[in-house]
Write a protein that binds this DNA or RNA. Structure first.
Lengths: 229, 229
DNA sequence: GTGAGACGTTGATCTAAAACAAACTCTTGG
DNA sequence: CCAAGAGTTTGTTTTAGATCAACGTCTCAC
């Protein structure tokens, strides 16, 4: 197995204040894994043996209800830590992480967390910043689901994905990973039927173009209007 | 102003591993304040100058949308830290804290946070545990709002309040702070009308007894059934 | 003691979105 | 190449819960 290059981590916030040697140390303790689209990195309730960093790809963090329905709590983009139950003194993962696209993940055993925060300048600070942002984001989503109409929620969800992973094409901005109508309904607490109708309507209005598992937003400003933000 | 007694803090998780002298130090740096029911301890977007501990009373943590609607994100019980934006490297509060009953609050300047976590054994650990629990709880609430019917959500919200603050009476378990129909609707993303009808129906079924701003749950098990948990 | 404001109830109507239903169309694997 | 499964579309019906509306009642301040 080839050695990982230090440059993989050096640009990322939790590691930005560390020198080459320190990053080397950290990398040498990591396990690297590749996941196919749709695989679970860990699942809800499972013992939190590791904490992780997404190097490449995309993840959905998902909770499943007793009744079998599921909702997508948030998405993880490359460069972000996830499954950091250890940071919050939990011993099980509170949600399931499933890849939205083929992904590369670094993992460290949970017990190393304490050492990382103690030894590495800025690691704790930046990690807790991430936790804070995520908490804020979940609160936003929750407020949105509780107060906004379905169309606004769906618009907001699409915009969130565009902001996290959008890449320019000639037609507009494209979401950088596969998304189904069902996925969007799981993000917004609605049904795939409603999402499908919504996208059809938007397509008729020239706001989006979409094919199977694939969405291009051609008029982002109009979506922003719809979302009411 | 009288000196605060060390016993106020010694039983609480973040301080449980500290000795008298350390607790004295911490108390001497605190500001203590009394708030009437309905007052704001801090509000959304405000600079996070302090972090706080609720000694007595009850708090609601609230977010307000652009459209003026509000939702209650969680409740804070006595003994809990809150407004710990500093812990998550935020410089503004992400939500508003308003007292649900007359409350006593200790506050420390945010810059002390770093010192507390560094000097006091167990303080960081326990505080982050709290953050983790709160994150989990918000995720639960969000999942609930996204997937459950209104009656289930309202039942769950009432049960949550009962669990946090319930005290036994001859009639049943009483929620320990004033709650309006509007408050419950703000917790569940519904309207006061719907909540009112729901409580009336439950009262007819002998599950609750309620008067103005006051709820006694007479058949908790039935509420649990309704909530579907 | 009275009046204003906050809180609560209940009825009638309306509607957004779920549920039900069925067909269409890619994609993939054997 | 074709069959099965996954994803999508679209029509129709149904309903939970919002909205509109009006009135009752408690609390407290003057």
């Amino acid at each position: 197995m080839q050695k990982l290059d230090e440059s993989l981590l050096s640009g990322l916030p939790p590691f930005s204040r560390l020198n080459r040697a320190q990053i080397r140390e950290i990398l040498d303790q990591a396990r690297i894994q590749r996941f196919e689209e749709g695989e679970e990195v860990f699942s809800e309730g499972m013992e939190a043996t590791h904490f992780h960093l997404l190097l490449d790809g995309f993840l959905r963090v998902v909770r499943t209800t007793a009744g079998g329905e599921q909702i997508i709590v948030l998405h993880i983009s490359p460069g972000q830590l996830f499954g950091i139950a250890a940071a919050l003194q939990r011993d099980t993962y509170p949600a399931t992480a499933v890849t939205a696209a083929e992904s590369i993940v670094l993992s460290w055993p949970s017990p190393l967390w304490a050492g990382f925060t103690a030894q590495y300048e800025g690691f704790a600070t930046e990690s807790y910043k991430t936790v804070g942002q995520r908490l804020g984001q979940i609160q936003d989503t929750m407020t949105e689901i509780a107060t906004q109409a379905v169309e606004q929620r769906v618009a907001a969800a699409v915009l969130r994905m565009v902001n996290q992973s959008g890449r320019k094409t000639e037609e507009g901005i494209e979401i950088g990973f596969p998304v189904t109508r069902q996925n969007i309904s799981d993000m917004t607490g609605t049904t795939l039927h409603t999402v499908s109708r919504m996208l059809s309507a938007w397509e008729k209005d020239g706001i989006v173009r979409s094919t199977r598992k694939h969405i291009v937003v051609t008029a982002p400003h109009r979506l922003v209007e719809i979302s009411g933000h």
